[in-house]
């Protein structure tokens, strides 16, 4: 790993300032970034730790909206969101393993936008809002492909605001080695509107499965998506799953998420 200057601001304002340095990179839980740096695939000159900023931590609920500070570890979300938004808490409680969940944060996960990460599915299906040091970004606008987001240079995610759906669930199918998602579905229903977000499957990262959404809006039941498949052309094909397999799993995991949401 190349060396770097380590700074640990205690306020967002200081962090924003620190991020202006040449070659600065935000460090949240580091559960992906540090491995990447060990492989020398990332070599920031300055690492700005966001773990010491109190205003970026915690889970709060106001009415039907839940806000999660961007530097809140998954383990905390799994616990503190359990009552207000159990599906999202369950998602957080299934990321990686307990030690990863102690450190990894929602902000770090979203900023990285790994195509097999769990949080992007929950955020996109929930139509959440990503709050940054500069603005607010709708989930539909935030995810822009593999490891690509709407974030600008130096922009820091500070919180994520979730409208709490009436019913929701996340059905995760593990990639057997990494324990990331091979193809997983987050289904959220509010009123009669249904949003389905799929992670792990697509060459373009997390996506909304509109065909599934249409079918489920008409009939919110596992049967509604039974046999439906995503377009295999857009799917990732690798050692762990062919394009056709992932396309089929999109339907299967969506149906399972619906069954869980109805339970």
């Amino acid at each position: 790993m190349h060396n770097f200057d380590f700074v640990k601001p205690s306020s967002l304002a200081e962090a924003v300032k620190a991020m202006q340095a040449e070659g600065a990179q935000a460090l949240s839980g580091g559960q992906t970034l540090i491995s990447t740096m060990k492989q020398r695939l990332a070599a920031p000159a300055v690492l700005v730790s966001l773990t010491g900023i109190a205003e970026m931590k915690g889970v709060s609920v106001a009415g039907r909206v839940m806000t999660i500070g961007a530097a809140t570890p998954h383990a905390v979300v799994a616990k503190e969101a359990a009552k207000a938004y159990p599906a999202l808490a369950a998602l957080a409680g299934g990321i990686g393993d307990p030690a990863v969940r102690s450190r990894g944060t929602i902000g770090g996960s979203l900023a990285n936008n790994d195509p097999a990460a769990c949080y992007p599915a929950g955020v996109l299906a929930s139509a959440a809002t990503i709050v940054t040091s500069r603005r607010e970004i709708a989930a539909d606008d935030f995810f822009q492909g593999l490891f690509t987001t709407a974030l600008e240079e130096g922009e820091i995610i500070t919180a994520v605001r979730f409208p709490i759906p009436d019913r929701a669930a996340y059905a995760k199918f593990l990639q057997p080695a990494s324990r990331f998602s091979l193809t997983s579905a987050f289904v959220a229903r509010t009123g009669s509107a249904v949003r389905v977000a799929i992670t792990g499957a697509s060459e373009n990262g997390v996506f909304r499965w509109t065909e599934g959404e249409r079918a489920l809006s008409a009939n919110f039941s596992p049967q509604a998506v039974k046999g439906l498949k995503a377009n295999a052309d857009d799917m990732i094909g690798d050692l762990h799953g062919s394009k056709a397999y992932r396309a089929a799993l999109v339907g299967v995991m969506t149906a399972r998420a619906v069954a869980m949401a109805m339970a």
Binding site: S49, T51, S102
Partner: peptide, 18 residues
């Protein structure tokens, strides 16, 4: 894995300075 402030953490994936 060690405990950091009581929680399990992979000590190979956290910087000492943090």
């Amino acid at each position: 894995v060690v405990h950091v402030n009581g929680a399990p953490v992979k000590s190979c994936t956290v910087f000492a300075l943090d």
